[in-house]
Amino acid sequence: MQWGQIKTLFILSFLILDLFLLQQFLTKQEEAQVGTLQDSMFDESPAENNVEISGDVPEEAPEVSFLIASLSDFTENQLEAIRDLTDQNAQVFNENLLVSTLAEPVAIEDDEEVISEVVREYVPFISQYSYWGWNEQRNKILFFQTTNTRTVYYNSGGVLMVDVEDGQMTGYQLTQLREDEEDSGDERELLEPVDVIDILYEDQVITTGDEVTDMKIGYYSAATFDPTQVFAPIWKITVNGEEDLFVNAVTGEGRMLDIDEDEFIQATSEYFMELMSENSEGVISNEANEREADNDENSSEEEEE
């Protein structure tokens, strides 16, 4: 019958259509797979057989977002804590820079434990800062602020700088950063530790026989004196247990950062001096406060009289 013939025709044409669609579907699927395959292709690492890598170095990079933080004013609670400081003349300039001189210099040794212990006694909210090192050249001990469990390296906005004279701690300056909550951005994939070591090896910063003893993610911003800064995640690479190198950890950047500690201390000291001279009025001080309190009492008594 005619209807039977039409059906046969339909069956044939649908069969062809189905085959075509199936082929289309498979190619599409294949393309998608090829795309992901290419991403995960990797080359041989040039540093692999030449540089020793310690077991402390993480295998993989964590996903970390950029950090946006501002030089922060001290909170009321913090100011209260500063007013209660004893055995020192502590002053807060511009509500964000704490400068203190100890009444009596305290002897310290070049030992992280000892320094931390001594400093803890005199400096408020010390838990926010982690010990970095003693710069003998400039007579300063540096502590860097820690945010999100990661250290912000070499930033004038989040540093504790301890003055040292003849092996004695004489005073300190302190600033703090606070993270801007609105926009911290998405978490980024970072350069893998192996890639970072390759970069350093190819730039001949580390050579055959060196050992990478530690690698850590921290934050760094070059715009160190800006009130609000963007901090990029960076890798801190410790070579042979003594030398620290910094590499921008954002994929596509992978650039070594040239940080001069002496220069940093110099610039930061100047920056603090500037802040102090510009904001010589409205200084909050632990001693002045005591006096002020006395004055207030006196004046109120006088008024009553």
């Binding site: 339909f10 069956i11 649908f14 259509l17 669609l21 199936l22 579907f25 699927q29 393309e31």
Partner: peptide
């Protein structure tokens, strides 16, 4: 004739399925 009808229906159904599959796959990709 019944067998042919069944085959036709299956084929039509399969083509619809593939078309939808292709469409669905495309936007995601």
């Amino acid at each position: 004739e019944t067998l042919k009808s069944i085959i036709l229906v299956i084929l039509i159904g399969f083509s619809l399925l593939l078309t939808v599959g292709l469409w669905y796959y495309q936007p995601e990709y």
